[in-house]
Design a protein around this nucleic acid. Structure first.
Length: 499
RNA sequence: GGUCCAGUAACUCAGUGGUAGAGUAUCUGCCUUUUAAGCAGAGAGUCGUUGGUUCGAGUCCAACCUGGAUCACCA
């Protein structure tokens, strides 16, 4: 706890004063007959019948005027003005009211009426303290102009404070609160979309004896009773596939992944991933599912199909384009690598002055050219297909070209939004891919994944052909809420300690 | 990790070497229909931290802390 400042001292004195008056500043019991939204709905009826109502909420503003006072009361359904007059509540209750501050939770019993200036308000018969605020909220004022626009003054805008004290951000900045309401709607809609299509939602281990399913450095923790190190999962993939081996044909998980890597505008160490697996489906099925999901979220859930994101207008209302990675490299980097010729690719990368990764084969070089010259050009949604097999250790090869994987990634505004493939179900092939990864790891690649014998054994029992899809929920919410920073869509983003 | 920018009262911000400021918030007084209430008065600050230069530093210099932008890295 910080040292008490002048404001806190004063409020603690008021707390004492309340106790002296026999008022419990933090009572157990509260009551309300209506939410504020409900009394606003039923204005005329409540006013004409002079119905007694009891409201509860947080006092967010106070305008005192001698022997009467006005305030604004807010709950999660709306805001309404309160009117408290000494002659109506009585002397002793008015003494209590005088100790109310903005930030307090209060209860008020009375009837709805219109003030002289026409503002719909509750006229108090009795006010009750529900929870005394002792640390004043930052002062944010707002005014509604003639056109009905809300003008805000001295908004709580410090970015660092908004992240560190998100509760204040939510309380004081309605437009930031709205982002997380939208996020909730989006996540709910994702579940409904998949449930309607016969998928079941499952939960798989976060603490894993081995990590896999992506290339990333893991967090490591320790289990005392078993005396073993465990990893926090970096992906959902390998456990979900085990479930398909187990007979669940359509599964998905919406869950937190953890990657022990850098943090920036699009990376938080923990982030939410959707992974979907559908037996007897394929890449085409996954494209339809992805396209359908984005359309649904945009049109049906948010009611808009054009999103302003990273300085672009992104349209989600049309079928997404498709292009092969090699064609895109040809178009934007200016080299035709459809022959997958290593020497040609290497010479070109060197000529361009690109840094060649250790042990890179032609697939890695194509990826390098793609990342360098293509990604930023992909603005409107586009499915990039035909990934090199070398960089796709869990995907099936294409039947007509063993150098390529049957895989796509969805790019929007220069960023990756989905990753899908026809899942590799050949246990022998999968073992070879794992061993190639292990070899990279032995060479010092910190992000290569270890061989997962338990998973290989599951594959040996047989896994049906299927399509799999991964979508980063945070980035999708960024797009759909038009936010450029991942911290704006994660309630409590990772921050450095201050001490 | 590199570069650039920022950190001053509870909030939003001014302040380019000479006594720490404003608006809001807060407190006191007045006020029985206000609404960014009003009027009068008052209090409130380790100027991110630590050093340095200087007669004198919020201001100049250095290092560090925290955040942001950007680049690198990270599918």
């Amino acid at each position: 706890m910080q040292k008490p400042n002048q404001f806190i001292q004063l409020r603690l004195q008021k707390l004492e004063r309340l106790r002296e008056l026999g008022v419990d500043p933090y009572p157990v019991l509260s009551h309300r007959s209506h939410k504020i939204g409900a009394v606003i709905e039923a204005k005329e009826a409540l006013v004409s019948a002079e119905t007694e109502v009891t409201l509860a909420g947080r006092l967010v503003a106070m305008r005192r005027q001698g022997k009467l006072g006005f305030g604004d009361l807010e709950d999660d359904s709306g805001r309404v003005q309160i009117y408290v007059q000494r002659d109506l509540v009585g002397e002793s209750n008015y003494e209590v009211f005088k100790l109310f501050d903005p930030g307090d939770f209060i209860q008020i019993r009375g009837s709805m009426f219109y003030t002289k200036s026409g503002e719909y308000s509750i006229k108090a018969r009795e006010v009750t303290m529900l929870s005394k605020n002792i640390r004043p909220l930052p002062a944010v004022k707002e005014k509604i102009d003639e056109k009905g626009n809300v003008i805000r003054y001295d908004e709580f805008a410090d970015i660092e404070l908004r992240y560190r004290k998100r509760y204040l951000d939510l309380l004081l900045n309605p437009r930031h609160r709205e982002v997380f309401i939208k996020r909730s709607k989006i996540v709910t809609a994702v579940r409904e979309f998949l449930d309607e299509r016969g998928f079941i939602e499952v939960e798989t281990p976060i603490l894993q004896p081995l990590y896999g399913g992506a290339n990333a450095r893991p967090f490591i923790t320790h289990h005392n009773t078993l005396d073993v190190d465990l990893y926090l999962r970096i992906a959902l993939e390998l456990y979900l596939k085990r479930l398909v081996v187990g007979g669940f044909e359509r599964v998905y998980e919406l869950g937190r992944n953890f990657r022990n890597e850098g943090m920036d505008r699009t990376h938080n160490p923990e982030f939410t991933m959707l992974e979907v697996y559908q037996a007897y489906s394929d890449l085409e099925g996954m494209m339809n599912l992805t396209e359908g999901l984005f359309h649904h979220l945009a049109e049906d859930v948010l009611g808009q199909t054009c999103f302003h994101f990273r300085g672009y207008d992104i349209h989600l209302d049309k079928p997404f384009e498709r292009a092969s990675m090699i064609d895109l490299v040809k178009r934007y980097a200016g080299i035709d690598l459809s022959d997958m010729d290593y020497d040609k690719a290497l010479a070109f990368c060197k000529e361009k002055g690109l840094e060649i990764p250790e042990g890179a084969q032609v697939g890695k070089l194509i990826e390098l050219l793609f990342e360098t010259y293509v990604e930023e050009k992909l603005v409107e949604p586009i499915f990039v297909v035909d990934y090199p097999k070398e960089i796709s250790p869990l995907a099936k090869s294409k039947p007509d070209n063993p150098m390529l994987a049957d895989r796509f990634e969805l790019f929007i505004a220069g960023g990756e939004f989905a990753n899908a493939f026809s899942e590799l179900n050949d246990p022998i092939d999968q073992r070879e891919r794992f061993e190639a990864q292990a070899a990279l790891k032995a060479k010092g690649d910190l992000e290569a994944t270890p061989v997962d014998e338990d998973f290989l054994e599951a594959l040996e029992y047989g896994m049906p052909p299927m399509g799999g899809l991964g979508i980063g929920i945070d980035r999708m919410v960024m797009l759909l809420t038009e936010n450029d920073s991942i911290k704006e869509v994660i309630l409590f983003p990772q921050m450095k300690r201050l001490d």
